[in-house]
Simulated assay, not measured.
Amino acid sequence: MIHFFEKGSGQPLVLLHGFCESGQMWSYFSEALSDQFRVICPDLPGFGNSPISSNKISLEEVAVQLEEWLEENQIHQPIVIGHSLGGYVALALLELMGNQIKAIGLFHSTSFPDDQDKKEMRDRTILFLKKNGVEKFVTSFVPPLFPENRREELASEISLAIKDAKRSSLDGLIAYAGAMRDRKDRFEVVKNFIGPKLFIAGTEDGAVKIEASRAQQNGFSHYVELQGVGHMGMIEDQEKTLSIVRTFCLSAI
């Protein structure tokens, strides 16, 4: 059972949240874009109000669940944009559904797999979660997603992000840490997709290094770098990123 909310009508636009997030992270975007699109924001299984049945899942399994959910809710030819983990899920969905997806966007995400250092970090995350639980993990995980020099300025936004992250289930966090660690390289999947493709990168992103983003640039029809922005551009540079997403989505229809 995938919980979601939607606003507006017309061309479907599915916004997928990242790790330790829920569909609520897109509240501002969904409201702003609902004047031109049918904006749909699901909670991925294990986050927000969507349950998960175990602490093991693959991105391919999530994509199958989303494909079924899209069909059930008559969401056809959607534009799919995913933040971080949501981007990984969007790529798995693209591989599954191909030209049934109208356009795709990666928001502080990557089509590349984890390198060895990142895989080891995922393993440490799983051990930490099993030992310490959700609250202790998210309290330490969320703030570094924002640039250090702006954390005081964005204190209230960070506080809200932590509050939303605490709604994540322990099984969900463990499951997706493993799924992200084990995900495959999908650069060729996105490169071979003939629809419009958006990539938004932050020059100060600690989770997706700018060098890795630039290495994928030729796989996307629209590539944008946000100067001085970390991993949370939709919060750090709200109006600019909203404009980028709107312009891309309008160009895709």
Rank of each mutant, 00 (worst) to 15 (best):
H3N: 15
L106P: 11
A177D: 04
S221Y: 05
V80M: 01
C20E: 06
A165K: 01
D164K: 08
S53K: 14
K209H: 10
F5H: 11
K136F: 03
D43F: 08
S169I: 07
G86A: 05
E72L: 13
E152A: 12
D114K: 10
P143R: 04
Q24I: 13
E120H: 12
K163E: 15
K7N: 12
S111P: 15
F193L: 00
G178N: 14
D205I: 09
G8D: 09
E95K: 13
I200F: 06
S169M: 08
V142R: 02
E120Q: 15
A207L: 11
L226M: 13
P113K: 07
A155H: 15
E60N: 12
E211N: 03
S221Q: 02
G133P: 02
G98K: 11
I104W: 03
E135C: 03
C249L: 05
R38C: 01
I101R: 01
L13H: 05
V208R: 11
F137K: 01
I194C: 09
P45W: 05
F137D: 00
E225P: 08
R214K: 13
S111I: 07
W26I: 07
Q36C: 09
Q74D: 15
S213M: 11
K130H: 04
L85T: 09
R181I: 08
A161W: 04
A201E: 07
F29P: 01
G133W: 01
E31C: 01
F4Y: 15
E67M: 06
S156W: 01
K163W: 09
A161Q: 14
L145V: 02
R151V: 08
F19M: 08
E72Q: 14
I210W: 06
H108F: 08
V64L: 13
G230M: 08
Q11G: 02
Q77D: 13
